[in-house]
Design a protein around this nucleic acid. Structure first.
Lengths: 127, 127
DNA sequence: AATAAAAGTTAGCCTAGGTTAACATTTATT
DNA sequence: AATAAATGTTAACCTAGGCTAACTTTTATT
């Protein structure tokens, strides 16, 4: 596996957003991402260039955005971390869903593999 | 309480480091912090100015550094978050101490109050 | 087809937080 | 006391990631 690409937290957020948007809409556009993430289009534009340079998505000038296989893989990984954390916060700790989402969204970028894995194991054990 | 000062994660790290250094050494100097945090002295220097501007510490040109009451309060709060997370990672999840420290050190800056509080409650309940 | 609207891009600015190189000051040593 | 060493400061640079304003391109409407 070549998933050794190490993105910044910010770029991981963009990737995750594109992944989520692509689930509903067939076409993902810069404006969609900007609206979804509540960021300016130029900010999104630059992030897209960056992700493209990392071969995580395809994008032609003025065109639509499509994740590559690598992009999808990485996005799924990030999203899994997000879901795992959210689930733990809500189900085990009893955090308000909105706050749980928010915390997960920040922690998903910095938590280590070991900690995430152990958290998954822990949740399965407790049930 | 006027602990409504909102620092960046980076500044929280500096504050925590100063707090920990001040426990052992009577005098804390810029060089001590730079060595401890493995950062350059100019970086520390600027951070100190910033913390001083926030009334969290006292520092005179070429002199030593001393946390104010506010600074100590806030540092303790940050350190408590750190300890809580580390404890949870090690004792509940079984994470290697070094990784636990590392993860705690990053998460302590972004975890919400509610989540931290609920985590504390959860740990007391489980025992 | 012409024009208006929407979408995308570029340029340039800002902040935070790191760096190194050079300089100033203080402290220690000879 | 003079000099060397350690410490602290300043200036200038870099990167990442936001932003707005202005411009280009595409798409939709009249």
């Amino acid at each position: 596996m070549r998933s050794s690409i190490k993105l910044t937290g910010s770029l991981e957020d963009y990737l995750e957003a594109i992944y989520l948007l692509a689930k509903d809409k067939s076409e993902v556009r810069i404006t969609d991402i900007a609206v979804f993430m509540n960021l300016s289009k130029p900010s999104v534009n630059r992030a897209i260039s960056n992700l493209k340079a990392n071969a995580l998505l395809e994008h032609e000038r003025y065109g639509t955005i499509k994740l590559t296989e690598d992009g999808i893989l990485l996005a799924k990984e990030i999203y899994f971390r997000h879901e795992t954390l959210t689930k733990f916060f809500i189900e085990n700790l009893g955090i308000d869903p909105e706050i749980a989402q928010n915390d997960a969204c920040k922690i998903e970028h910095i938590i280590s593999h070991q900690t995430l894995n152990k958290l998954v194991a822990y949740m399965n054990k407790i049930i």
